[in-house]
Write a protein that binds this DNA or RNA. Sequence first.
DNA 1: GAGATCACG
DNA 2: ACGTACGTGATCTCC
Length: 888
Amino acid sequence: MGTDRQKVLLIDGNSIVNRAFYALPPLTNSSGVHTNAVFGFTTMLLKVIEEEKPTHFLVAFDAGKVTFRHEGYAEYKGGRQKTPPELSEQFPLLKELIGAFSIQQFELPGYEADDIIGTLARMAEEQGQEAVIVSGDKDMLQLASDGVTVLLTRKGVSEVERYTPEEIANRYGLTPAQIVDLKGLMGDSSDNIPGIPGVGEKTALKLLADYGTVENVLDHQGEIKGKLGENVRNNADSARMSKKLATIFREVPMDWTWDKLAWSGYDPSQLEAGLRKLEFRSLIERLDLYAAGAGGAAEETEAVEYVAVLEDKDWEALNRDLRKADLFIVESHGDNPHQSEGIAIAVATPEQIYLLTYEQLLSQEASELKEWLADASKGKTGYDLHRAELVLARSGIELRGQEFDVQLAAYLLDPTEADPSLTGLLQRHGQRAIPSDEAIYGKGVKFKLPARDVLFSHLAAKADAVRRLAGPLAKELDETGMKTLYYELEQPLAGILAGMEKQGIRTKAEALEELGKEFQTGIDRMMTNIHRLAGMEFNIGSTRQLGEVLFDKLGLPSGRKTKTGYSTDAEVLERLAPYHEIVQLILNYRTLTKLQSTYIEGLLKEIRPEDGKIHTYFRQTIAATGRLSSQFPNLQNIPIRLEEGRQIRKAFVPSEEGWLILAADYSQIELRVLAHISGDEGLKEAFRNEMDIHTKTAMDVFGVTAEQVDSNMRRQAKAVNFGIVYGISDYGLSQNLNITRKEAGDFIEQYLSAFPGVRKYMDDIKEQARIDGYVTTLIGRRRYLPDIKASNFNIRSFAERTAMNTPIQGTAADIIKFAMVRMDEALKARGLRSRMLLQVHDELVFEVPPDELDTMKELVPAIMAEAVPLDVPLKAEVNVGLNWYEAK
DNA sequence: GAGATCACG
DNA sequence: ACGTACGTGATCTCC
C-alpha cells in the first residue's frame, strides 16, 4: 500500500446537509429534535467511506452569511428562504457526529465551503495526490481534473454520480473550466446569480459550443441574431459578473498541510456512542454487520437456528423434510418483480428452517425442492407469494399450493397500514422484532449483499417471523369475518393476477414510435411559438418559470396559489385562455409532452424485447378501498378521454395472429352498488327499468320529465352523481360545475329529497363509522377511519367522505375481483384459449381467438353480471377489435 | 423526497 | 368557521 496514491475526501457540508434535510422525511429523536438531515449525512458518510477508502478527510462548511462575493454583488444568494429551525437545530448534532467519525471540519469567515474545498483540491493536485469531492452543487464540477473527481448527489443523498472531466465532456460537451461560463450565461436562480435573461441551459450550451467562453461570446455579440443577441448585448456586464460569482476561489488563506488532513478511520466504539446518542439504531446494526464478526449486535432480536444447505447430508435432510415443509420465503432484490433478482430461498417445516442461495435453487440438486414448490397439494405459507411466483417463474420454476400469505392477510386486516414489511407486522402484532431488510442490505444504491451467514440468518429470522405471524393473522381474519374474503377471493386472485402479468400484453413499438413522431412535431412547433409569444426562452415544464412568465412578465391575472408559488394547472390556465393566445398553446403543449414522456417514451421502455410484450404488475395490497393498482408501467391509466391520447391504445394488440382484443366494462357499477347498499327504491327502480341514470337524476333534481332534460341538465346531474359517490359536499360540487356553493347545495338537497334512501345511507354510514371505527364493503372488507372523531373540521370531513365513498368503491372492487376469479375458472373449465390480460377497475380486457369470439361475447358479460347478486341488475358491455382502441 | 401536474376509473 | 370532491401511478422540477 505504501506506494499507493493517497486520497482526500472533501465534503461540502452545507450542500449535503441541505439535500439530506429536504430528501428525507421528518425524523425526530425522543426529545423531539429533528435528526433527518444528520441521518442522511451519516448514511452518505458511511457510503463514501466504504467506497472511496480515503486516507485524508475534511468536511467544509460555509461560515456566516456574508462572503467576499457579496462585496461585488450584494444580492448574491438573495431571495433564499431562511434556514428552517428544523434544520438549524441539527447543526450542533451534525458537528458532533462528524467528530465521532474523527473527521476534521473547517470553516472560514468570508469564504464558502466551495472555496475551501477548491483550495484543498488544488493542494492535493500539487502534491500529486487524489481528491474526491462530495457535493450537491453542480458548480463543483469546475474543480474536476485528472486528479480530482466530483461526486454529485442525485436523488436525495442516497445516490451519487461520479464526474470526471471525461464524464463532463460526455454530458455537457464542456471542459470543467467552462462550467463557470455556463453559469455566467444561464445564471443560477438558487444563488440569485442573474446570467443572461432568456438563456437557459440549452441556449448556454449552444453558445459555448460556438464561442467557448463568456468573454468570447461577448466579443462576438454582434454576430448573434434575434432576441438572443439583443439579450446578450444588453446583459454583458451581468454575464461577466455571473461568471465571476460562480468561479470558485482556490487561494483561500489557510494553513492546512497535506499531513494535517490525514485520517486513519473512525474508532468503532466512539462512532457507536455517537450514533446511539442520536438514536440511529438501524445504523448501529448495519455497522456491526459491516464490521463482520464484531459481535454483540443481537440486541432484542433472537438468532433463529437454521440449516445452511451445503453438503450432501444437508440436501438429504432437506429432501427428507420436504413432505413436512409448509412455509417458504423467496428473497429477491428490486421493486419490479419482473426484473428483480433472486437472492436466496428459505424453506421450513414446523421444526426446521433450510437455507439455500438462489443459485443453489437453480441447480440440478434442488429438483425435489422445485417439485415441492410446484406441487399444488403441498399447502404453503409465505410473505408476498404473488411476487415470489413472478420471481420464480422467471427462473422457470412453478409455484402452486399458495395457502396463506401474511402480507395479504395483514392488508385485509388493515388496508391503510403504511408499513407492510415483516418488521412492521411483527411490531403491530406484538411479536418479537427482527432486523429490517434495510438494516441488512442498505437502501437504494447502497444495497449490498452481506456475507452468506448474515444473509441466511436474516432469512431464517424472516421465515420464523412469518410462522409466528401466520396463526394470529388467520385467527384475526376469522374474528373479523374476513375468512371468505381472504380464502375465496384475495388468495385465489393473487395467482390469477400473476398469470395475467406473466402473459403480458403485446404492444407494437412501431405504432408508438410513429405516434411519437407526430407528437414531437407538435411539441417543437408549440415550444417555438410559446417562447416567441413570451418574448423569451424558458422551461415550460417548470411551473415556477411558467408562473413568472404568465403572471409577472405578461401580467395575466393570477389565480390560485400553491405552497411554492402561482398555480398553473389546467383549471387555472383554462380561465386565462381568453386573455392571451399563449395560454391555449401551453395547455396543448402540456397534453402532448405528457403523452410523449409518460406514454410514448414510458411505454416503449417497458416493452420486453424477448416477447414484444408489456408485463405490468398489479398490486393487491395498496389501495385503501380494495382496488388493484398497476405499476411498471401503470396500464390502468392509458389515455382514452381525448382522441389524441386515445390513439395510444392502437398499440395494444393481441399476441397471436388473427386474434382479437375483447374489452368488457361494467355500466354504472358504483351507482348500482349505491342503489343496492342504500336500498333506495327510486334508484333501484331506475336500474331495474334500465333507465339512463344521469337523465333520471336530472328529472328528479330539476323536477322535469325525461323529454325536458337537456344536455346541460344531464351534464350537471352526472356531476351530482359523481359527487354522491365521492361523498358529497356543496363546495366540491360547486367547484366541479363552476356554480355557487348555494346552487350546489340546492342540487344536493334536491337529490337527497328525491332519493331518501341515499340520504339515510349517508347518515347511517357516518354514524356506523363513529361507532365501530371502521366501515365495510358488501362482503366485509374493512377500512378503519380513526379521523372520523377528529376535532379538526377538515380532517373529520375527509374521514366522513371516505366513510361514504369506501363501501361504494370497495364493493365495486369486490365485485370485479369475484368476476375475475369466476372468469378464470370458466376459461379453465371450458378449455378456452382466450386469456384475461388486464383489469382497469370496472373493465376486463382479454385476447381471444376468432373461434371463441361468440362464446366469449356471451360468457364474459354473463359472468361479470352474475359475479355478486345485488338487488339491482349488474350490466357489462362488450366490445371487440383488432386492438384496444377499437374495442370501444 | 416533496410538490405540482395529469393520465385513468 | 372550517376550505375538499374518492382511489391510484408516472414524470418533471426543485431544494
